[in-house]
Design a protein around this nucleic acid. Sequence first.
RNA 1: GGGGACGUAGUGUAGUGGUUAACAUGUCGGCCUGUCAAGCCGAAGAUCGCGGGUUCGAACCCCGUCGUCCCCGCCA
Length: 435
Amino acid sequence: MERIYTPEVAHHVGERVRVAGSLHTLRRLGGINFLVLRDARGTVQVVVDTAEALASLESLLPETVLAVEGLVVAEPQAPGGIEIRAPRFEILSPVRAALPFSLNKPALKASLPVFLDHAVVGLRHVQRRGLFRLSAGIMAGFRATLDGLGFTEIQTPKLVASATESGANVFAVDYFGQRAYLAQSPQFYKQIMVGVFERVYEVGPVFRAEPHDTVRHINEYVSLDAEFGFIRDHRDVMAVASAVMRGILAYLQAHYAAELETLGVTALPVAPAEFPAIYFPDAQELILQRWGEDCRGEPDLAPQHERWLGEWARTEFGSDFLFVTGYPMGKRPFYTHPNPADPAYSNSFDLLFRGTELVTGGQRLHLYQDYLDALARQGVTDLKPFETYLEAFKFGMPPHGGFAIGLERFVMQLLGLDNIRLGTLFPRDLSRLAP
RNA sequence: GGGGACGUAGUGUAGUGGUUAACAUGUCGGCCUGUCAAGCCGAAGAUCGCGGGUUCGAACCCCGUCGUCCCCGCCA
């Protein structure tokens, strides 16, 4: 008999069906017992009321993998109004060891380190599983939105020869006796590919060797990158970035309602047709006026400043999103395009989502000579590591720009997680390289 | 890299100097024919992270050490 998924069982009342999955829970009441079987899509109750059937489950613990054949019966007392009776069990993979923590309770009760140590089974919990389904939905929504805008998906190398993009620390690896690095971003390659496809995006891992230890940093994360040509300036990039955010949220609403419900998300973030934006120096002025902290002249915003600005966007514009534009040039990588009217500031932006930096982007330089000048200003004398990168500009690149979204941070802010590690399948941090 | 807090059964917690370290959950055994966080009865399970010190006496106080978490810097 062909196996069906648990949500389909309801369509087979009066028939015998075969379902397969994990033993979620077995409630033994004596003469009647209820086994709940969990598969990838849901759960179904199986009534076990004969000694033989019960004996076939003897000494099996939760997470035992089994197949069940039985008769589907409509029963008002059953969860979902449906249950399987007169079952025959086929044990596919018996479990006789107790789990480190219960997976069959509504809320998973394990501390963060315990959960992470046992993530291989902990991820099976319905809520954790739903969270990572949602994460898949964010990637799918990102792709769907950009596909609709004429972008081409690319995959660029994660093993790279030079680690010269910015100040961020990189992981060095041995590459057949040569020094190589794990890519800290696809920046160079995605720009190069604008010369090929004009509009590109990439979903892939990036590696940061920063020894930071906070609730919103990990050392390997998934970056949702986009880059495209023939822009006027960074405002065109912001328009696409906000369209992507709205596109992702709409995609979740359309295709991931069940996961959102499982995770208790009753309302999606407020993403207005046009996201509010504030110019970097104006943001600092606002912080002084509203919260009395003078950070004018500082090259960057501190996390507290971002939280304040997030509140402000919420109360002032009813938006969960806020662009901060024009970060000082000194704080941005060399490929950043300056503001022609105010060259100390850049044509770049951050997008704050509920008061945390979620997206960084901007207009890039596109003229060959500008790159040579920018690198010289950075004190770079050896252009050799930049050779392949610069070659693209030598042979003509359109005005372009792009942005990158941190996937796990998006999940974290969307679901109000306390720690980004909860939004990462197998997080890599200062002390965690396994599982 | 700088600062702060916390380490107690498998798991989550209580216990702030005094016999046998408590509760919930999980596990094991028993009862139970409508459970859905099942219920009731019983059992096992902790050298209180590790090492040293103070004390008649330490889970508790002190020092060291290891581990974990949080904040800042930095970033997505």
